[in-house]
Design a protein around this nucleic acid. Structure first.
Lengths: 204, 204
DNA sequence: GTCTATACGGGGATAGAC
DNA sequence: GTCTATCCCCGTATAGAC
């Protein structure tokens, strides 16, 4: 039993209860990624998580509250992974390249970026907030790196760091779009090649 | 009566009938743009078009057939508008810039690009086909222009035309994503600035 | 061609028993 | 905490009358 080594906490917060709650959130993440918010039903979430109606409505008020938990985790995971790459070794441009070239689930798309195409996510300020914050953070962080790279002479001095960062993030998001349209991840790679080609300075 | 000046054609193809069919398609285009395919119901289409159940199922077999007609028009419209800009006056880079800077309904997004995020559109080969073809055409056409610009000495010779074109199209599609996430069209403009800034770096 | 009537399952949630 | 029963409206389509 998992409770065996857990001491003096309310039983209600541990054991199977937590697992169901956990599974509900994780199942919702998967479904939002695969089908979007409008395309995801409470019933589908229940089936995938193995929880029943009562369980789901015990832990969450409804579909949107569950989605909020799921989206929050998506954004936090992506942020943490990106930050690990940004904080790694190498020059600014090298770290950006590592981030951009990282392995991705191309045809599934970006779990957060996809949400911007969902009318009900965008219409609900609570759901839109984590999406907005994630992209705001990512763009700002990349702008810092471009600034750093420019100062170090790795980058053309006339480039605007924020505009360049925005273009790069947009290119990645659009890369998913094009790859899905083509039904092939190669198009994403092609877009990345194009972007890095533009970033490369003459000396390099 | 509109039939007054139409001679010797089956009545069934003209008059109110055509208008309903037309309105059904146009309403579907709007709804697909606003809510996606999974988020659009036949009922909503009927209400917006002013047609009843019987009318809709007389002209189309069902939702997907209607969507196919709507998506086909979307793609053709976008293609025609882009081609008009590509075939305009100016150098290759100038024509690309005109296209990229053209006024857009940023917060609504790209009516065709958005469809790539819809699970049911991507799962249906018939519906995905016009989406795939549109982006294939657009990328190829821009690659031709980049090639032309390179040959004319406007661009650095080391740029790969196809990769650059892919990156540019991706940047536009991603610009919509970021603008929607931020709730502001300015982000799209920022991404465009960044992309054109990078291209300027490669000008001779 | 268009309408109304009808069908059946699913979406999203509540109620109350265990 | 979790389950089953129940609710009501919507999604998607067919049938048949006008």
């Amino acid at each position: 039993m998992r409770e065996a080594w857990i001491v003096s906490v309310p039983t209600s917060m541990y054991g199977l209860g937590v697992d169901k709650r956990e599974r509900l959130i994780e199942s919702t993440r998967e479904l939002l990624w695969e089908r979007g918010y409008v395309g995801t039903s409470p019933k589908a979430i229940q089936e995938r998580s193995g929880a029943g109606q009562g369980s789901m409505y015990h832990h969450f008020q409804g579909k949107s509250e569950l989605a909020l938990a799921a989206i929050g985790r998506d954004a936090e995971d992506l942020r943490a992974r990106a930050e690990a790459e940004f904080a790694g070794p190498g020059t600014a441009i090298e770290r950006i390249t590592v981030y951009v070239r990282r392995e991705r689930d191309i045809l599934k798309g970006c779990p957060v970026g996809k949400l911007t195409q969902d009318p009900e996510v965008m219409a609900d300020p609570e759901l839109r907030k984590p999406v907005e914050e994630y992209f705001g953070w990512l763009t700002g962080r990349l702008a810092e790196l471009f600034d750093e790279g420019r100062a170090a002479g790795e980058l053309a001095p006339e480039l605007d760091p924020l505009a360049t960062a925005t273009a790069l993030v947009a290119m990645l998001q659009g890369g998913y779009v094009l790859a899905r349209a083509a039904g092939s991840p190669d198009v994403f790679a092609k877009a990345v090649d194009g972007a890095l080609g533009l970033l490369a300075t003459k000396e390099n």
